[in-house]
Design a protein around this nucleic acid. Structure first.
Lengths: 152, 152
DNA sequence: ATAATTCCTAAACCTAACTTTAGGTCAAGA
DNA sequence: TCTTGACCTAAAGTTAGGTTTAGGAATTAT
């Protein structure tokens, strides 16, 4: 009755719908990523919109975001009421460009790696693409050219 | 003298060139990702090609590979001699398509997420894009539509 | 009404990927 | 030579992101 009237789901149902383990869902709660209600008996009852929240978490993880960062992102969503399209859109300002940047970086790395493998520079002492004149040391740390710096 | 003749670098130099902490480099050795030589005094001496190996590790990590997987990938590289272009190319068979697939997945997620945010479906009960007729439960677990399944 | 499920908490445990610490050794330059 | 900075090992500690266990309470099915 409770479930029907309030249109809420149990932790088992949320787990089945998202593929996320019950223990993980409880863990997400401890990390402030979701905040389910409780029924009279103390059991968790989740709004259906939490299926979307969980999906969002999974997607963000694929992009390499930590749970801490994901919580920050979701903090801009309303706490009491169900988020509207406007709420999500507001949150996604800047987020979309973060995703774009991440994809861009990966593409760049893939292409450079591809180029380097093609010419053998990943294995050779003097590769114009990767490290011309072997002077990269002066420019600081990191695999700078493959990561995005231009070999000046 | 040793360094000049053998053209090897110290762990501090490798750290400076890659931006990877000395402790991490030692850790990579325990994990079988690199296998430096030792000088008479027992100190590590790295071939310059290990700069590329470290760069490769960093790139793979950005793509979400574990060190275990990365070690597997690099196992196809020769152990004794410096890898040639052909060696790297051989290793990259299949690898390139893994990278492509990863990028593809992220693009798909970004686009679907974008669409969902645009129409508000991440917050609404009945969204044709995300979960038509709310019957996704029958199709198994996971945030299936956002992750790639088509909504039938 | 009772049995089988599902759920609860708290605390311990786990893996990956490192870092820190402690107590020394090696190497390079003045 | 001697001193200072770089390096060594082994072992313990750390953080993220969970899972497992133990002991019990709530719910659902028969």
């Amino acid at each position: 009755m409770d479930l029907y009237v309030k249109n809420e789901i149990t932790i088992g149902q949320l787990s089945a719908r998202t593929g996320v383990a019950i223990s993980a869902i409880r863990y997400y709660e401890t990390q402030g990523l979701i905040a389910p209600n409780r029924n009279a008996g103390g059991q968790r009852r989740f709004p259906r919109s939490d299926i979307r929240r969980i999906s969002f978490i999974l997607i963000c993880q694929q992009f390499g975001f930590t749970l801490t960062r994901i919580r920050e992102l979701m903090l801009t969503l309303p706490n009491g009421r169900t988020p509207t399209a406007k709420d999500w859109a507001k949150m996604s300002v800047g987020f979309r460009s973060e995703l774009d940047a991440k994809i861009h970086t990966l593409q760049k790395m893939r292409d450079n790696l591809d180029g380097c493998i093609g010419c053998g520079c990943l294995s050779m002492e003097n590769c114009a693409l990767y490290n011309p004149t072997d002077s990269a040391a002066e420019n600081g740390t990191g695999p700078r050219y493959l990561m995005g710096d231009s070999p000046a």
